[in-house]
Design a protein around this nucleic acid. Structure first.
Lengths: 334, 334
DNA sequence: TGACAAATTTGGAACGTTCCAAATAAATGG
DNA sequence: CCATTTATTTGGAACGTTCCAAATTTGTCA
């Protein structure tokens, strides 16, 4: 019932040439005669022949499949990142295995193992919380290039592309200070993550530079999601001396914070200033537009939606920078 | 430099057995002696041997790789869908090629071709706008199961899983009518899509049932995104006799519509009623929560966030129903 | 202990490609 | 028309696995 796929040999027979000739035609070799090529191509088209890349790959050491492991596709930031990687990968002729880990390191281990068995030639991964260097050691030992995205693992010696968290939040905090705010909260994020630590440090240093003592009550960890933003904001609003502005771990938290503000009868932007981080597409289209930290042209900057609307380059541009690194590594080992 | 991967033969040599034995061990065959098995497993672990699934697959006609093609990962609805499919695929031991088409049929054709060469055993696709039955014919002709998700292609005879657009919007419209609204708009979506047509029909029929004549000015197409929601709402608000409520093509449009309302100084939910479609995660956490149409347990229902907060099952549950279909088809051809 | 059965192990062909070395065909020059 | 060069085509080995049929080892019983 399930007619097996045509093979190069079927085509060879049908076209009255040898399998080698068909192979050469498939590779676009200049060795083969024009008439032969055309004839073979016609037969290929007629038979609906599908090239078997797995079989071909058996002879090579490397494939054109990259693995992409992402911890939370549900977060627009990561979704945009995935789309950016996808665009670059497609353009470069790669096809990608993509998996979602939901921050689960076991699942991450599992999908990476599975991807290896399936012959990936490189891996881009936003590591799940709690990932360690040794989760990636076997890959590196086998010369499979790994690039960590968005999050890194300290001292692991693994290539990574991350934004300058410190500088971004530093600028964001200073931006709020410049607007006249003196009680500025820092909202959202898991306290045990590096991103959190780095962004918090940017916040702390900016306050320090402004001669403001950090009030620990204004720093509120939570899930780095919209829901987390709601709860974090609710908590700081209930303080006896609530803040008038907040730097949020990321845009998702910032949106949640805005929700909580509205629920409390306050208008974000007018009664309370908010800055996000990531510059997701939505930041630009939401009303009022969200002031956020964007990572364009290799550095971070505060895109203030109040002053001027800067274009959102963000994800795609970032991916453009990321993938080449991946490919470069691959070139190295080839 | 790039040490080639270990093969089953390396392991066989190191363990002093034949390759066949190693193969049996890898397959967990009960034929092989316990001591041998343990020994071989130890050698495998020591060498960091990685199973080469592509080579093995050469002998079979089918793989454990499914293709997932999605038209817009940037839309939370599709992102959640992708996550659901991913969860099910992982559980069932599949690994997935995933690609994003951005509604581009050429790109879609290209990625599907590429996936076929790489040996997918089945395809789940949210077809890009403008897809035709013949885009999938070659797959079906070769007994590769295809399931269309979210969108279908009329009369193509391809399995599909879609929500009951008519019933959902019908209920949503009636819900608004029950709340006392009489001028109800229908916002967002590309007018040339089937989803649009079906949802619009639900709206039309509900109005008809309520003896309200449809005012064409209240039907406004736009991009099915947040930005599209903004523009659609702006347009109907500028009418001489603006609506007091709106059914939106999907949640993204609904969020955009809320943004536009706020920009116009109106409070969504109080001054203007909005219903979405999809029940994305955000619908529940946004403030005020969005009343939306959810597809749970196989049918659609209006989850009114005003009356009672129904849990959002949505995507994951949907995928649970989808994937088995995919697998069932596969079983059929096996 | 020998004969037989059961348990375990094994070599080789096959899967669909690529590549090499060699064969063949066509073209060129004398 | 032959010798030589150049253009084209080709069979077979190899890639890493699985599976079959056959070989070997181990166990059992008279």
């Amino acid at each position: 019932m399930n007619h097996p796929r045509h093979t190069i040999i079927d085509i060879a027979k049908a076209a009255n040439v040898s399998k080698s000739t068909v192979s050469l035609v498939l590779q676009g070799s200049p060795l083969v005669n024009k008439t032969t090529r055309e004839h073979v191509n016609k037969v290929i088209a007629e038979h609906g022949y599908i090239y078997n890349r797995a079989a071909a790959g058996l002879r090579f050491s490397t494939s054109k499949i990259i693995g992409v492991v992402v911890n939370d596709l549900t977060n627009p930031f990561f979704a945009e990142l995935a789309v950016g990687i996808d665009a670059e990968a497609q353009e470069a002729g790669f096809v990608q295995f993509m998996a979602h880990t939901a921050e689960n390191t076991d699942r991450q281990k599992h999908v990476i193992a599975s991807m290896r068995e399936n012959g990936i030639c490189g891996l881009i991964v936003c590591p799940a919380r709690g990932s360690t260097a040794q989760d990636f050691e076997p890959l590196l030992k086998n010369n499979i290039p790994v690039v960590l995205a968005v999050r890194t693992i300290p001292d692991a010696g693994i290539s990574h592309v991350i934004s300058d968290n410190h500088a971004g939040v530093f600028d964001a905090t200073r931006h709020l200070h410049d607007l006249g705010h003196r009680r500025i909260a820092f909202l959202g994020g898991f306290a045990d993550t590096r991103v959190f630590a780095e962004r918090l440090a940017g916040y702390r240093d900016a306050l320090f530079g402004a001669m403001i003592t950090l009030d620990a009550k204004l720093v509120t960890a939570s899930m780095p999601s919209r829901a987390g933003g709601v709860s974090a904001m609710e908590r700081v609003l209930s303080l006896p001396n609530p803040p008038t502005a907040a730097v949020c771990l990321n845009d998702a938290v910032a949106f949640g914070a805005c929700d909580a503000l509205r629920a409390a009868g306050k208008t974000p932007g007018r009664d309370f200033a908010i800055v996000g981080f990531d510059d997701v597409i939505e930041a630009k289209s939401v009303v009022p537009a969200l002031t956020t930290v964007t990572s364009r042209s290799g550095s971070v900057a505060v895109a203030s939606r109040r002053d001027a609307r800067r274009a959102c380059v963000g994800r795609r541009a970032a991916a453009k920078r990321w993938l080449p690194e991946e490919l470069r590594l691959q070139a190295l080992i080839a």
